[in-house]
Amino acid sequence: MTRVRRQNDRAFDRTVNAFLIAVLLATLTPLVYVVSVSLTPLGQTTSLLPRAVSFNAYEELLRQPALIRALGNSVFLTLSGVLISMILTVCTAYPLSRPDLPGRKFLTGVILFTFLFSAGLIPLYLVIRDLHLLNTYWALLLHGAVSVYNLLVMKNFFQNLPESLEEAAKIDGASDLQVLWHIVLPLSKPILLTIGLFYAVTQWNSFFEPVLYLSDARMMPLPVVLRDILTGLNSAEYIESAATTTAPPDGLKMAAVVLTTIPMLLVYPWIQRYFTSGTLSGGVKG
């Protein structure tokens, strides 16, 4: 190796690492600043890192019954949403993954078509209305309960499991449901966890559908309340009058952002651990 080349390679290496650090800072700076604003005491100007720290904004927020109720609503919606979505997805993906099931291709096509073509928002809204699901949690739990993408990823995963195990169980007289429950699902833990987390994240983050389908303010989940706090809309409902406030308005807003983000950060390491590029890329094919 020539010396010039080695020097060039070293310069290249430094450039690459400097670039990665720059990207890291660009991603983290906004998040750090949000936390900093949420901790800045009343009457002080904000900066990237706080000069003094006060948890008043968090105390103030956690004292608001409306916010606690919204948190409860979100937890309930996320848990029941994941349960419904997983049951529907597994029970659809497994039969369609059996190569000898008559009509498998046709049914997969019927499902795939809904992935490629949609008539938009209004026709679905009319369905929810005609089923009398408006202003019920069923609307939020059901309108997008199955993601075709997740369904196809799971179907592909089931298809790639070794056939012999299931055949052996079948010969022993196990029913389809028994094979699914006792053999296929235990082998599919990583994919079940990944897809379950994807459903959970979608439900936890959803803010448009609650606004669309619900009218009762008491039923709204956390992101809707967060948006109202951020825009100052109906915020009197969530935060008591400014006279009693011990934290700056911006601090309250950013504390609400942080509180909504924390549960996401708690599950993120698990998403991370089970997320492998192989499980999800190429899932649409086949």
Binding site: P95, I111, T114, A119, G120, P123, L124, V127, D176
Partner: peptide, 30 residues
């Protein structure tokens, strides 16, 4: 022979009928 699997498919297919194909039918209001 596959009746168990079809039974398993039923809730999912019902969901697609209600929340994906019924909207297509409703699209006639365009």
């Amino acid at each position: 022979r596959h009746r168990g699997l079809y039974l398993m498919l039923l809730p999912g297919l019902l969901w697609f009928a209600l929340f994906r194909y019924w909207p297509l039918w409703n699209a006639q209001i365009a």
